[in-house]
Amino acid sequence: MILVVAEQHDGMVNRSSWEVVAVAQQIARSKSDPIKVAVVGVDVEAAATELTKADVAEVLVVENDQLAVYTPDGFVEALTALVQAESPQLVLFSHTYQTRDFAPKLATRLGRALVTDCISSKMTPDGLVLVRPMFQGKFVADVSLRGAAPHFASFQIGAVRADAAALGKSAAPTRRIEVAIDGMAIRQKPEAPFKEAKQAVDLTQAERILAVGRGIKGQEHLSMVQELARALDAEIAASRPICDAGWLPMDRQVGSSGQTVAPRLYLALGISGAIQHLVGMKGSRTIVAVNRDVDAPIFEVADYGIVGDLFEIVPALIAALGE
């Protein structure tokens, strides 16, 4: 049996949990395994009902008052009990911030390993092989599972399409599972999530964005980028390290921990294209990448690419735009 641990917020299923249902269906097909989907929390009926539409054997609702707000300790307690009761062969998650927060602890508590951030899977004569990026996406690795089941794996957000998940002919049955949780075992006291005070720049409205990454080398070179932005009539954005270094304000950051943008033109200068950056901009209509490394992952999402030194290309672009 394959167990998918779905993530929900305020009764809404994360889109990426549907992606993991699709992954589970792919793996199950080659092994003809049943799939169960677990939702953990209090008042998660709406999420559970949504998930019963999937072509799966069962939806498990894991309940306890201690799970009303997410804590890693609460989730580990609940899911340890669930995994022990249901004995899955494989437990799958979406590689979200929440999964990063609790799943390694869960696997360790059960004496198992977790393979994180997988992008695909394949069946081989030696069993299931998971594919995951390494070296910030410049390489991928085929990873084989060792030791006894259950095995644990998380899949990168966007690794497969959510709409690839097959829907069932009729709603899957739901089963409620009341788990016992010792309140003392929960050591984190979380407060309500919040957003920082309103951001000064709203990149989501920009028609054109010129984004700069670590290839720019120093803050002093930003004036050249600003000049190009004026010539393009574009807003300036950046990858995380540029904002971390304080070269540009945080509200210009694009990516999983910054803004998600979809302008008509996104021009990336000296950005490698780590997944956390790509999720924030890959919906852009036309993507241009300038990078001196032909293997940089940014070229995977680009429509036009120039392989070269941005310190030569930027002045040349400014000149060409002036013509």
């Binding site: 696997a107 393979v115 991928v140 690795a141 085929d142 990873v143 290309i313």
Partner: peptide
């Protein structure tokens, strides 16, 4: 080990990016 790398490789290129060649200018 709970898992082991059996092979490491450069990912296949999927989307056809149009590379623009020539001098910078």
């Amino acid at each position: 080990a709970g898992y082991a790398i059996v092979q490491l490789y450069v990912p296949e290129k999927s989307k056809a990016v149009q590379f623009i060649k020539g001098s910078s200018g």
